[in-house]
Computed example of a mutant assay.
Amino acid sequence: MAQATLTLTMPEQVWIQQLSTAYPTTTFRVLAAVPGSETGFALVRISGPEVADVVADMRDHPQILEVTLAQSSNNEATVHFETTAPLLLFSARESGIPIELPVEIVDGEATIEVTGSRDRLAELVDQFERYGLSYRIEHVRERLHESQLLSDRQLEVVVAAVEAGYYDTPRRCSLTELADHLGIAKSTCSETLHRAEEGIIKRFVDDLPDFDSEESLEDQLASS
């Protein structure tokens, strides 16, 4: 399974692009969303100095069919609405990839997290292009469950090493003392720690955003 972080820009003719760029200091935080057959429904928390104006413009926008105010204050409002242009929802539905919520949209850009097979993720970006969404790839990596990173024994030794102060500066526990505490040979303890550290460090390096953001998602998925 691959995990991708992408920054999206909506088409200029879509309401969220128009409103979020008209009110660039406003944050639209999508808390829940579901696509219908031809429209989409969402619960969004809007925060910023011009919340009342934003909500008023939502009510007046032709792509917003209904707005229900759930909560409001001077600088924040939570609204439930229906729109004829839920491009993110349609893209997710057609590709079979759920978009992880919440999603924040500020000044015309939304950063999203998605996880799925490489084929599904490639289909998702195809759908983005179909609906006119431009995207920038921030990060792509293989998503592993923690149990795939360390074995039970490696996890046991690493936790014991941390608790005993083996990784403290200055070190409060020697390798010999750690091995004695665990009841294993010093060489076994050293080898187990080395293999665990190898897995942890490689995961850390893999998570660094060291890719070329101009490379297509399909190419990154194929090469990862």
Score class of each variant (00 low, 15 high):
His139Phe: 10
Arg93Gly: 05
Val158Pro: 01
Ala160Cys: 08
Leu89Asn: 06
Asp212Gly: 06
Gln63Pro: 03
Ser216Ile: 09
Leu217Asp: 03
Gln148Val: 11
Ser20Phe: 06
Arg118Thr: 02
Pro170Trp: 09
Tyr23Phe: 15
Thr84His: 05
Phe211Met: 14
Gln13Phe: 14
Glu123Trp: 01
Gln148Ala: 14
Ser151Lys: 06
Glu82Phe: 01
Gln71Thr: 05
Ala32Asp: 15
Gly48Phe: 04
Phe90Pro: 00
Arg203Trp: 10
Glu198His: 13
Glu163Gly: 05
Glu94Tyr: 04
Pro35Ala: 07
Asp168Val: 04
Glu66Met: 10
Val114Leu: 03
Val54Arg: 08
Ile201Val: 15
Asp107His: 13
Glu156Leu: 08
Val114Asp: 03
Val114Cys: 03
Ser151Pro: 08
Ser151Asn: 09
Glu197Leu: 07
Ser73Arg: 08
Pro62Ala: 05
Val103Lys: 00
Ser213Gln: 11
Ser224Asn: 09
Glu138Pro: 01
Glu163Thr: 10
Met1Ser: 10
His139Asp: 11
Glu191Asn: 12
Thr188Ala: 15
His181Ala: 14
Glu12Val: 15
Glu138Phe: 05
Glu214Ala: 12
Ile16Tyr: 06
Arg45Val: 00
Gly165Leu: 08
Glu109Ser: 12
Phe211Gly: 13
Tyr131His: 11
Arg118Lys: 10
Phe81Leu: 10
Gly96Leu: 04
Leu19Met: 11
Pro170Asn: 09
Glu38Met: 05
Val30Ala: 12
Thr39Gln: 11
Val34Trp: 07
Met1Phe: 06
Leu65Phe: 12
Gly96Asp: 01
Phe28Pro: 02
Glu214His: 13
Glu76His: 05
Glu113Leu: 09
Asp168Lys: 07
Gly183Cys: 07
Val14Ser: 00
Thr83Arg: 01
Arg93Gln: 13
Glu218His: 08
Pro209Met: 14
Arg93Ser: 09
Glu191Ala: 15
Ala56His: 12
